[in-house]
């Protein structure tokens, strides 16, 4: 990997972390564990469409680990990681069939899978299916939040920030 690329990826990770930390300050709107805006995923969606699979996975893993350290909730790392991986793998798979105008859809699917991963992890860790009753709530909140972050990412991607201004 070129130095230039490493620098750019770390810059993206830093932006995602800043968004993540600012979002922590926003009080939870709903008393449902796992339901949140996920604004940091704007960067994830952006990376999925601008970088290759390996680089995106690296970026997301770094963000999740550092994010849970900064957020002060390391015990939640299992949930975040399971969600992020589910979401990422699916978004990378459907990247080819989704045109530029439907990136928000890819983000919605990613958000739903993120919640699916979290729920599966919770079932595994708690050895109980009680958390499954949150799933429909999470699908609804995930769809709305995913559409919003997806639209944000879509506008950024379509604007096409030229690489040269960064390289100089």
């Amino acid at each position: 990997m070129k130095t230039k690329k490493i620098a750019r990826l770390s810059l993206l990770t830093a932006i995602a972390l800043i968004i993540f930390i600012i979002e922590l300050r926003i009080p939870d709107l709903l008393p449902i564990p796992g339901a949140k805006l996920g604004l940091a995923n704007i960067i994830t969606v952006y990376a999925v469409y601008k970088y290759n699979a390996r680089e995106t996975i690296l970026l997301v893993i770094t963000r999740v680990i550092l994010g849970s350290l900064f957020g002060g909730n390391v015990s939640a790392i299992m949930y975040s990681m399971a969600g992020a991986m589910f979401c990422l793998i699916c978004m990378l798979l459907i990247r080819r069939i989704i045109p530029l105008n439907f990136i928000w859809l890819s983000s919605v699917i990613g958000a739903i899978l993120h919640n699916t991963g979290q729920i599966l992890m919770a079932i595994l860790l708690m050895r109980s299916f009680a958390v499954l009753s949150f799933y429909p709530f999470l699908i609804i909140t995930g769809t709305i939040a995913g559409a919003f972050t997806g639209l944000c990412a879509q506008y950024i991607i379509k604007r096409h920030i030229p690489d040269k201004t960064v390289e100089k």
Partner: peptide
Amino acid sequence: SVKVLLVSVLLLFIGSV
């Protein structure tokens, strides 16, 4: 394929509601 994905997401959403 986009139509298929869109419809399935929509169905999932309505189902959740």
